[in-house]
Design a protein around this nucleic acid. Structure first.
Lengths: 181, 181
DNA sequence: GTCTATATACAGATAGAC
DNA sequence: GTCTATCTGTATATAGAC
């Protein structure tokens, strides 16, 4: 755990980037090695197989989610507002890890699918105390899922259909007014 | 168009099934041929390439969406309620086509991604007259997206986190009360 | 720790018989 | 229209030098 080699992290970054930017088909061992600036042999010294790389991505995701949940609970603007607002961000490490994992899940990885379900449960448990009842909890979760889903479909050129700026503020205000306990 | 050979349709069905049940990695030409009960050569007589198969799936999706939009507009229970309820179904042809297309989009297919964005725009235009304003329209669309997203992650064994039965009725009632013009 | 070279498997696609 | 056999490219992974 201590002092992990620089190359190891940059290989994982390259894997994640390729998944996010170009999809699972593009994330081959060759492409990952090239993007990370190492040879295929070098890559395989750090991660002995593609499955090892996927496992490492899932572990990174898990750590990022843990930190995110702490932030949700302490957010000054309120947990629901913070949770929804953070569902629409694009380029922070957590969102990239989620989108990458989502690509793997849709490709057929059962582990990745299970990881996403587990994250959703942890978020749900965190939000539960801050809403009125079961139904309003569903509403918050589904709006968040919807925001994430649109993130995953975003292509870098076209702006996504998801609200930003004042439209996002208005959406959050609407949801908060509806779900407040 | 008239009297399309039975085998042609069953090849497309097999492609869709493999995408939905097992993800894009599993949907190889070999696996598709086997599932459809034809040889690889037989498959390639009907669809000369994998891209042709993807194009056919997108065309099927387009037709199903067209029919769906007509149903949304005429639904006796109201367009918003019908739209949300139909977002949670699992085994109708439209949902399977959407999930299959979603797998291709996450795999990296730009065409599939564009098709999903186009569907979303058509739905949005259909729902627009039935809600109060821009913000409530966003809310309905995002809840629908959230329901679909959870569908795509559902694994066949575990029941998904998405509401059914009375919980779904309550959710729909909540959203309708919030967005009604 | 990182490299080159190579083994093995499997993908998509072609050729041509029936 | 459907088949078998085969070509070609490319994916993951191994072996072993440096």
């Amino acid at each position: 755990m201590s002092r992990p080699p620089r190359a190891r992290a940059s290989v994982l970054d390259a894997f994640e980037d390729l998944l996010v930017e170009s999809g699972e088909r593009a994330a081959t061992m060759d492409a990952i090695a090239k993007a990370a600036g190492v040879s295929k042999g070098g890559l395989l010294y750090h991660y002995a197989s593609k499955e090892a790389l996927e496992t490492a991505l899932l572990e990174r995701l898990d750590e990022l989610v843990e930190a995110d949940i702490a932030r949700i609970e302490q957010a000054p603007e309120g947990s629901v507002a913070y949770f929804l607002r953070s569902s629409v961000l694009h380029d922070d490490p957590l969102d990239r890890a989620i989108i990458a994992t989502s690509r793997l899940a849709q490709g057929g990885s059962a582990h990745a699918g299970a990881a996403l379900r587990s994250i959703r449960e942890r978020w749900e448990a965190t939000i539960r105390p801050h809403v009125r009842d079961r139904v309003t909890l569903e509403l918050v979760m589904l709006v968040s899922d919807g925001l994430y889903f649109n993130n995953t479909l975003d292509d870098q050129s076209v702006p996504g259909p998801v609200p930003t700026g004042e439209a996002l503020d208005a959406l959050i205000a609407l949801v908060e007014a509806t779900v407040r306990p």
